[in-house]
Computed example of a mutant assay.
Amino acid sequence: MPHSYGGQADGRRGFPAGLRSLAGALLAAAAAVLSTLIIATPAAAAVPSCKVGAYVTDLYEVDPVRRTVDADLWLWSLCPRKDLAALQRLEFINATKVSLTEPSSEKVGNEYWTQVKVSGTFRQNFDLTNFPFDKQVVRIRIEESALDESRFVYRADVKNTEYNPRIHLDDFKITKFRIGVVSAPYRTNFGDPRLKQGGSSRYSQLVIEFQLTREDLTSFGKYVLPVYVAFLVAMISFLIWSKDDEVAMITRLGILGTALFTIMLNLRTVDEALGTLLNVTLVEEIHFISLVYVLIGVANTTYIMRLLTDPMGRPAARRINNRIFAIATGLYLIANIVAISLTVSF
């Protein structure tokens, strides 16, 4: 009986051992097949690319009215093959005019190093809303003009790209600088039969970017000084009284008219100088606040004249005048402080 039990036990132990052997053989076969498939499947071909960098030798003529900036720079490319010739197909997307020297190229090791000098005028989207505490971003966009992203891309030479530290701008200082590559989408394939018909396309684009921070506030003082003088004159008008009420009120209106004319004339000058007819800058906000103050003075004087037609209305006229003067002047000062503070902290 014990022998019989032991025989059955040996048979049960042998069955799982057989399964383990079979499973091991199947796993080995599967691994071999998978390895064959991986080796047989070709790796996706990498898109040809060139490393492209820049050295900006000069940045000048920052013109907020024309919304342009002039720049001189060296561009270079490092390509694994001579036929890639990255600098032969450059398109300066935001250039008004641009000139290039003849590219120079030489083989260095297993790569082809090419350089070209570029000078041009480049359109910008300047925002003067926060003038004179504004920061402007200047971009130079350079794009591959022939080969879409499936056939060629740029790689930014971040380590070697720089700008000339001796660049001097009249009103700004350079606070940030960088270079990068972006994908530029187009809602057309430009008729390329190699691309999906009726589809879109993408091209590699190199972006050189400066951040400029305004540091010269002289122009701000020139623009707002006439306005604040007009405000002081308008403020004084509230304090004019005379035994002859008619003379006093006519004098007030004359002063307020002069202040109004000064503000409007200076506002036109600012619009022409900054090219901000479609925007409202801090300087223009100060003009508008001052304009409202002067108009309040005109309305107050007109009302006081009506009260003074009644001999019994003189005390009330003085009381109302002083109250409006205090409220209007206080609100004017607060509005200026808030407007300037919000612009500076933006």
Results as ranks from 00 to 15, higher is better:
Leu22His: 08
Gly14Trp: 09
Pro165Ile: 10
Leu278Gly: 05
Ala146Ile: 10
Arg194Gly: 07
Glu144Phe: 00
Val33Phe: 07
Ala328Asp: 01
Thr309Asp: 14
Ile304Phe: 05
Val116Ser: 03
Asn94Arg: 06
Pro315Thr: 09
Ala25Glu: 12
Val280Trp: 05
Arg268Gly: 12
Leu342Tyr: 10
Ala335Glu: 11
Trp113Ala: 08
Glu91Phe: 13
Thr121Met: 15
Ser145Leu: 07
Phe15Gly: 04
Asp244Arg: 06
Val181Lys: 02
Phe152Trp: 08
Arg252Leu: 08
Ser119Gln: 14
Arg178His: 06
Leu253Val: 09
Val56Lys: 00
Ala234Lys: 02
Phe190Ser: 05
Arg323His: 15
Leu277Arg: 14
Lys243Pro: 05
Phe172Glu: 02
Ala156Thr: 04
Tyr203Met: 03
Ala184Tyr: 04
Ile250Phe: 03
Leu277Met: 07
Gly180Asn: 10
Leu308Lys: 10
Asp245Cys: 05
Tyr60Trp: 08
His3Cys: 01
Pro193Cys: 11
Leu278Lys: 14
Pro132Asp: 03
Phe177Gly: 01
Lys159Ser: 15
Val224Asn: 01
Asn321Cys: 05
Tyr332Gly: 06
Glu61Tyr: 09
Phe126Gly: 01
Trp76Tyr: 14
Leu19Asn: 11
Ser341Cys: 06
Ile174Asp: 07
Leu27Ile: 11
Ala95Cys: 04
Tyr163Arg: 09
Arg214Pro: 01
Pro48Arg: 03
Val338Glu: 11
Gly120Arg: 12
Val298Thr: 06
Ile337Pro: 02
Asn110Thr: 09
Asp70Pro: 05
Arg187His: 06
Ser105Arg: 14
Thr96Met: 03
Ser204Pro: 04
Arg12Val: 14
Leu73Phe: 14
Ala86Met: 02
Arg252Lys: 15
Arg166Glu: 12
Leu22Asn: 04
Asp192Ile: 00
Leu256Phe: 01
Asn125Ser: 13
Ile140Cys: 08
Thr129Cys: 05
Ala328Arg: 01
Arg214Glu: 07
Pro226Cys: 04
Leu225Ile: 06
Ile340Val: 15
Arg252Ala: 06
Gln115Leu: 05
Ala44Gly: 06
Met235Cys: 04
Gly53Glu: 00
Asn321His: 13
Asn160Asp: 12
Asp72His: 10
Arg12Ala: 11
Ala40Pro: 01
Glu272Met: 13
Arg268Asn: 07
Thr121Gln: 15
Val270Glu: 00
Phe190Thr: 07
Val108His: 07
Tyr303Ile: 06
Ser290Met: 10
Asn189Arg: 11
Leu34His: 10
Glu285Lys: 15
Thr68Gly: 03
Leu308Tyr: 10
Ser35His: 00
Leu291Tyr: 13
Tyr163Thr: 04
Ile286Glu: 08
Met305Ser: 11
Thr121Pro: 05
